[in-house]
Amino acid sequence: MSPSPPLRHEYVGQITGADTLQLGPEGKALEVITDLRRRAEDLREQALDEISRGWAEMYLGLIADNLFAERDAAPDHYRPALRAGEAGDDLLAREALRHLGDHDHDHGDHERARERWERATALGARAGAVPGTLSQQLLLAVLARGTGDEAGAAALAQEIVRWAAALGAVHLEAQATAFLAGADPTEPPESHS
């Protein structure tokens, strides 16, 4: 089971800008994101089982990565989340693999990123997470393009566009369409300062 909905909701609100508490440097109130981290730590300490502890670790990694820009610290949370997911939660394992693969990709280890992202894709599919599986495939398309397989990247992205359109997953459809036009969904958004 994943962390309590309020923590998840507030984390997503900070990432998407939907949370009205966003203030301060880089659009995040330090006290708000510090409180999210403290609550995730509390969830980890109070977890009654390995999978719940794994989800808390996953969110600690996400908070470190995406709210505090502590890229080097995040994998230390994703690895225990992966171990917990491998003990019986495909979606947790998928999330951990997805983010560990992102770090591999950023460090230029494309083979390790591919292994992790392919495994994450299979786990997402097995769990029935169709939009998540498609978003994972988009990362595989990024790797294909990055290793010179533009035809393979385009073919995969075209299928993602087709499936996303059929599902009504407009954000994912737009991402894949932008990818076909040359955008890289793994690049951070441009700041408009």
Results as ranks from 00 to 15, higher is better:
residue 162 R to I: 07
residue 79 R to I: 15
residue 153 A to V: 06
residue 70 E to G: 06
residue 117 W to G: 00
residue 149 D to N: 15
residue 25 P to H: 10
residue 62 L to V: 09
residue 161 V to C: 07
residue 117 W to K: 03
residue 178 A to F: 12
residue 149 D to T: 10
residue 72 D to V: 14
residue 29 A to W: 05
residue 3 P to L: 15
residue 152 G to R: 08
residue 55 W to E: 13
residue 24 G to F: 03
residue 48 L to E: 15
residue 181 A to Y: 12
residue 77 H to A: 03
residue 16 T to L: 09
residue 4 S to K: 00
residue 77 H to C: 08
residue 48 L to R: 15
residue 128 G to F: 01
residue 142 V to S: 00
residue 112 R to M: 14
residue 3 P to D: 14
residue 181 A to F: 13
residue 16 T to N: 07
residue 62 L to G: 00
residue 66 N to V: 02
residue 52 S to D: 15
residue 191 S to H: 08
residue 167 L to D: 12
residue 124 G to F: 02
residue 93 A to C: 05
residue 180 L to D: 14
residue 106 D to N: 06
residue 187 E to Y: 12
residue 93 A to D: 02
residue 123 L to C: 03
residue 14 Q to L: 09
residue 106 D to M: 11
residue 192 H to M: 12
residue 17 G to P: 05
residue 37 R to S: 00
residue 105 H to T: 07
residue 169 A to S: 11
residue 83 R to V: 14
residue 135 S to G: 14
residue 123 L to Y: 01
residue 162 R to G: 08
residue 180 L to M: 12
residue 148 G to T: 08
residue 83 R to C: 07
residue 169 A to G: 06
residue 14 Q to G: 06
residue 178 A to D: 11
residue 191 S to V: 11
residue 113 A to V: 08
residue 129 A to D: 15
residue 146 G to Y: 00
residue 48 L to T: 15
residue 54 G to Y: 03
residue 103 H to G: 05
residue 156 L to D: 02
residue 7 L to H: 04
residue 50 E to C: 07
residue 42 D to M: 07
residue 40 A to D: 03
residue 55 W to C: 07
residue 97 L to R: 13
residue 139 L to G: 10
